[in-house]
């Protein structure tokens, strides 16, 4: 019997055993409200998501581009808060079989209380946490409680990260390592650039699963990026399709899944 919790790392073991790559779509919780989030989570599951990344809206999302920032504004306008998201997931956890990774800026968690947050995350069966504004250097209390409450904690590595930083980040990450793009580099430019390929290979060389979020906007790019990684994260393109043409969302997401 394996230890309770840590569903993200367990999921990656399964995926690896099957020789597949993970498809990790992102949506913003509460965009435009939590009832709609419940429906979208089911759509993502049916379209073949291996893990779902769920964003927590924040007034000042400095690591995100305009598409996700506007989604956060819509979610905040409907009164979505971290507390409501945790309650929502505690109710919803039996209705979904895909591990959920919460992506939240630090301040909502800091104000909620770090230990209380991880405790409630465990109750809501949340598999992992990503903090886009948490550096390894500041991460000690967060890692401590993540471990205590059986939640994986995923750190970001960037194309600009030095080898020393890459090592520290990989050591701290559990579940997987999130290889994040910098603006101006998308899935399509990735295949042209040898420097990034080498950097990604270096990050992978430590043996932990590495997933890439590189502004993937279509199945072709998803397919291209997936060659370099253990999984592909797609954010803005999915947020956009749900907002602009919700009728086409399922087909689009399925086509991303199939390309990976």
């Amino acid at each position: 019997m394996t230890k309770k919790g840590f569903t993200v790392r367990k999921k990656f073991e399964q995926i690896k055993n099957k020789g597949r790559r993970a498809f990790i779509p992102y949506i913003m919780a509460g965009d435009p409200d939590l009832e709609e989030t419940a429906k979208r989570l089911k759509i993502l599951e049916q379209a073949g998501a291996d893990i779902i990344e769920l964003g927590v809206p924040f007034t000042d999302p400095l690591a995100d581009g305009p598409t996700i920032q506007r989604a956060a504004e819509r979610a905040l306008n409907s009164g979505t808060t971290l507390r409501k998201i945790l309650n929502f997931l505690a109710d919803f956890k039996d209705k979904i079989n895909v591990p959920i990774v919460l992506m939240t800026y630090l301040n909502p968690v800091f104000c909620y209380g770090i230990e209380r947050f991880f405790k409630d995350a465990q109750k809501a069966n949340i598999g992992g946490i990503i903090f886009p504004d948490l550096t390894v250097e500041e991460s000690q209390p967060y890692r401590y409680f993540a471990k205590k409450y059986g939640v994986d904690i995923i750190f970001l590595v960037a194309p600009t990260s030095t080898p020393e930083r890459v090592k520290k980040i990989i050591k701290a990450s559990t579940g997987f390592v999130y290889y994040v793009s910098i603006t101006g580099i998308t899935g399509s430019s990735l295949k042209l650039d040898k420097t990034f390929e080498n950097h990604i290979d270096f990050v992978k060389s430590f043996g932990k699963p590495v997933c890439i979020g590189f502004g993937v906007s279509n199945p072709e790019e998803a397919g291209c990026v997936s060659k370099y990684a253990d999984g592909v994260i797609v954010g803005s393109a999915i947020v956009k399709v749900f907002y602009e043409t919700p009728d086409k969302a399922f087909e689009f997401i399925k086509s991303l899944r199939e390309a990976i």
């Binding site: 400095l62 550096t135 250097e137 600009t160 990260s161 030095t162």
Partner: peptide, 14 residues
């Protein structure tokens, strides 16, 4: 104080 930023900025801050 401290340094609570996306990883992408860390090399620049260093």
């Amino acid at each position: 104080g401290g340094r609570f930023v996306p990883e992408t900025l860390m090399p620049a801050l260093e």
